[in-house]
Design a protein around this nucleic acid. Structure first.
Lengths: 148, 148
DNA sequence: GCAATACGCTTGCATATGCAAGCGATTCGC
DNA sequence: GCGAATCGCTTGCATATGCAAGCGTATTGC
């Protein structure tokens, strides 16, 4: 715990939790979606063909396949996403964002950016932000598919 | 999203989620506790008098008071924590770690440190770690009571 | 002092999530 | 080719968590 690595890992978790907690409130109040629903839409948007099989979403989001099934159902019902069955492999059910889904993502992303601005804004120099970005990019090295 | 702040916030969430997911598996397998139970014990250890009222734990951990009540019950049952009612204010129920609780925390902390080592270890120079630490400390500025 | 308010904790209900089993589709071994 | 194993998805059950209401305690306004 006096170890720098340990300290940094603890701080990393704490800062991320704080940020996520703040987001969570504003997202549900302003956009009517959860942080995880936002991240689901974002993963779609940043994927190769703007669509992903459910199992891929699960891996990227660190949740189980059943969670994706259950998150997708209401999002489909309110028209944020749609389903596409693969013609080659009928097991694959792609999730694809609808126009409404992309619009929702766009709104939510602007809230996200605003809060990111609050987080870093007046505390950090531009140069520091670049170093921070480079650091985080390296930490994501093991993680195959990333959002940023 | 081309905004550096936004990118960094996304990466922050992603790295933290990855790390937490990895921890979660090893904690439940090796130590038989969840990440949140670990954090609860850690908050106690790092608090002023090694004990905290339930409502304080809730604030620090970004969970509701009812979650603390429900997390504490089984931890009390297996002897990791104990309860102490305040003599001045009978509403306050302090949570205090038992000897077994501190031992468990110590074991779990070594697992935590090991994984923190994996995360940063071979990817970062010492100097970078210090910059990273300073950055994260500033990002925690708003957060009153911190773990690190 | 006493009523009204605020506070800390707990509990009922609703939602979210993981695990394991089940189902249908595909691929592999031979 | 065909049975066995694998894979993707869904569903039943158990656990975790938040919100709102309830309960008992303390503080405040007067």
């Amino acid at each position: 715990m006096t170890d720098v690595h340990t300290t940094n890992a603890l701080r990393l978790l704490q800062v991320a939790d704080d940020f996520r907690a703040g987001l969570s409130g504003e997202f549900s109040a302003v956009h009517g979606i959860s942080v995880n629903e936002f991240l689901l839409l974002l993963h779609l948007e940043r994927s190769a063909a703007n669509r992903l099989p459910r199992v891929d979403l699960a891996r990227r989001m660190h949740v189980s396949a059943s969670t994706i099934t259950r998150m997708a159902a209401p999002m489909e019902k309110i028209g944020l996403i749609d389903r596409e069955v693969d013609k080659r492999d009928a097991r694959l059910v792609f999730v694809v964002a609808t126009h409404a889904g992309r619009a929702k993502l766009s709104e939510a992303l602007s809230t996200f950016s605003k809060r990111a601005g609050y987080l870093f804004g007046d505390r950090c120099e531009d140069e520091e932000m670049d170093q921070f970005a480079s650091m985080l990019r390296r930490l994501m090295a093991g993680t195959g598919d990333t959002l940023a």
